[in-house]
């Protein structure tokens, strides 16, 4: 579903991504981890059609980016670390707006259902800026999945969530996965990411340095591996 090959992105003369290689199959749940500054968010923005790659190939559903960005946008849902919600609109109004942008059919029914799913039906007439971080994040998920995207991209969705909210997000993600969506999750919460996904990939210094089936490794093994892959590089960088 998502094919990335030899992806390079430079900001000016500073390289951020140096030849990223990543395939995400349809229906697969891949978690991407890496230290700060590894280029995770840049990679996410490129896949989300928000940023143009400097070189290399990015395809979603077989369509090459950025040329065919307008063809794949309908199939993408994005949860970024910003809420992408209008604080001065109510929860229902926010969803209505996005439903119209995506020309979602039966908007009323879907919005009602989505609000119920994320447990915000009672607060739907309140302005979003009065919501807690957790509620906002739940609404963000509802917004991102309202048009039933094939590909769900999540950039650090756990930031600022308490235990309960994180649990709710986990449940939502598992439900989305059961629905057959392709999910790409970026997080720095290693263990959390490992539990949910099918495959873990480690991004360090603009490259995928490891990719492994998460059902086959224990979390302690993975932590060791992560330290080896990112720590070694950093030690080298410190010389």
């Amino acid at each position: 579903m998502i094919q990335i090959a030899g992806l390079v992105k430079n900001y000016g003369v500073t390289p951020v991504l140096r030849g990223v290689q990543l395939h995400v199959a349809a229906g697969e749940f891949v978690t991407l981890v890496g230290p700060n500054g590894a280029g995770k968010s840049t990679l996410m923005r490129i896949v989300a059609t928000l940023l143009k790659p400097t070189a290399g190939e990015v395809k979603i559903g077989g369509w090459a980016l950025p040329q065919h960005g307008d063809r794949v946008r309908r199939y993408i849902g994005l949860v970024s670390h910003q809420t992408l919600l209008y604080g001065d609109l109510t929860a229902a109004e926010n969803l209505h707006f996005y439903a119209r942008l995506y020309s979602v059919p039966d908007a009323e029914v879907r919005i009602g259902r989505a609000l119920k799913q994320v447990g915000l039906a009672a607060r739907q007439r309140d302005p979003v800026r009065t919501f807690s971080r957790g509620m906002m994040q739940r609404l963000t998920i509802a917004r991102a999945t309202l048009h039933e995207p094939e590909v769900l991209l999540l950039d650090e969705p756990y930031t600022g969530l308490d235990q309960d909210a994180a649990q709710l997000l986990d449940d939502l993600l598992l439900r989305e996965q059961a629905d057959g969506r392709t999910i790409l999750l970026i997080t720095h919460d290693l263990v959390h990411g490992l539990d949910l996904c099918d495959r873990m990939a480690i991004l360090n210094r603009g490259k995928i340095v490891a990719s492994l089936n998460s059902h086959e490794v224990t979390s302690s093994d993975f932590l060791e591996l992560y330290a080896a892959h990112t720590g070694r590089k950093e030690a080298a960088g410190g010389k």
Binding site: T49, R73, I76, L78, Q82, L84, L85, Y98
Partner: peptide
């Protein structure tokens, strides 16, 4: 809230 991104990926 960076909603411009939401408009741009729509």
């Amino acid at each position: 809230n960076q909603t411009i991104d939401a408009l741009l990926i729509a």
